[in-house]
Amino acid sequence: MADRGAVARKAALGAAVAGGSVAAAGALTSVGAAAYFARKALTPDRQRPDDTQILAVGDTTVTLDITPETVMPGRYGLWLDSSRGHVRLGDVVALDHERGTVRRQVLGVDYGLLAPGFARWNQYFFVGPPDRALGVPTEYVDVPTELGTMPAWVIRAERESNRWAVLVHGRGARRDEGLRAVKPLRDNGINVIIPSYRNDLGARSGPDGRYNLGLSEWRDIEDAGLAAVQRGARELILVGWSMGGAIVLQTLSRSWLADHVSRVVLDGPVIDWGDVLAHHARAHKVPAPIGGLSRALMGRRSARRLVGVHSPVDVAKTNWVQRAAELRHPMLVIHSVDDEFVPVGPSLELAAVRPDLVTMEPWDTARHTKEWNVDPDRWERCVAEFVSG
Rank of each mutant, 00 (worst) to 15 (best):
H279E: 03
V264H: 12
A25T: 13
E98L: 13
V154D: 02
S255I: 06
G85M: 08
G240R: 10
R367S: 08
D356T: 11
Q230G: 15
S205Q: 08
A278K: 07
A11I: 13
F118G: 05
R120M: 09
V344C: 11
L236C: 06
N373M: 09
P207K: 03
A352F: 09
G291Y: 01
D338P: 03
W164A: 05
W256Q: 12
D110V: 14
E235Y: 10
A203L: 00
G206D: 08
D220A: 05
V307C: 03
L28Y: 10
V168E: 03
G206Q: 02
E235G: 10
A34Y: 12
L257I: 12
L134I: 09
P269M: 06
D314P: 01
S196K: 00
T365W: 07
A203V: 01
V31E: 02
I194Q: 04
D314A: 12
L226T: 14
A384E: 02
T149G: 11
G308E: 02
G128L: 02
A181S: 14
M1P: 03
A2S: 12
E361A: 15
A16D: 02
L297I: 10
D65K: 05
A38R: 07
G206T: 01
P207Q: 00
V337A: 13
P207D: 05
L113I: 13
N191C: 01
V192G: 01
Y76G: 01
D223Y: 09
G245N: 04
A246H: 05
Y124I: 03
P129T: 13
H329S: 09
V239P: 07
A366I: 12
R88S: 05
G268M: 06
V358L: 11
K183V: 03
A281R: 02
A224Q: 08
A27H: 03
N191H: 01
